[in-house]
Amino acid sequence: MLLPFRLARPAEPVFSPTARWGLMLIVLFALSVGAAEAQTSAGQPGILATIWKWTPLLAQGFALNIAISFLAMAIGTAAGVPLGICQISLLPPLRGGSWFVTQFFRNSPWLVLLFYCMLLLPFEVNIAGHIVPIPGWIKSTVGLSLPVMANMSELVRGAIRSIPAGQWEAADALAFSRRQILWMIILPQCVKRMTPPWMNLYAILTVATPLCSVVGVSEAMTLTRDALASEARNELLVPMYLYLLAAFFVYCYPIARATQALEKKFAVK
């Protein structure tokens, strides 16, 4: 006779999905270091030692990634908020124009926008007789801020539309002007709703910054490739890129966690 067997109850997940992903990354990194170590011929420095040697340079590159992400986020937000507000304007040309700009930049590949900015922006400008060069990383920052602006514009429009019509109606009945309603009643309520998706957008932007390596900016990805080229050791390839991945993970994971926590907090209220 067969005994009814009991299915083991799935254990409570100890780690969140993202944390497990991070853990996997570390395990993978350790495995790849081990595997690479095995291929290292006698007399060559160890894999970890080599990675350690390049770390200061890679950190410099990574700092540039962060700088680009901050700046592109600032520019994109500053331009995206007014663009989003224009999308609900009562003036048809303004509404239509801002809608078009938003859709255009939201649906263009980021890399294509980067190339366009590299090509179209001058490499130097003349400010009151002074020749001021524009370095490549600034141009690529502008390139990345365009899709950020478009996504921000949609966030603002969506947040405004998600405020119940009763808020407009009540404010109208109290004789507030449209401008006052927007600035004093609607937008303050939008800030809270927009914060989690705004942080999410920042995390997406940050992991997109290595795109700048394609247009020749010396950020972490470019420097990793340079380091690999100068070492000329095939077994370094996998651990080195995993090392870079881990750096991005360590930076972005807390942001993702904070976003989730905020979402939960706002959902309760």
Partner: peptide
């Protein structure tokens, strides 16, 4: 002048519509 009219006429709604912030 809508302002002049609306300051004379107050309105209360079914859903209260207070400003939550």
């Amino acid at each position: 002048d809508k302002l002049a009219l609306r300051r004379k006429v107050g309105m209360v709604f079914q859903q209260y519509n207070l400003f939550p912030h």
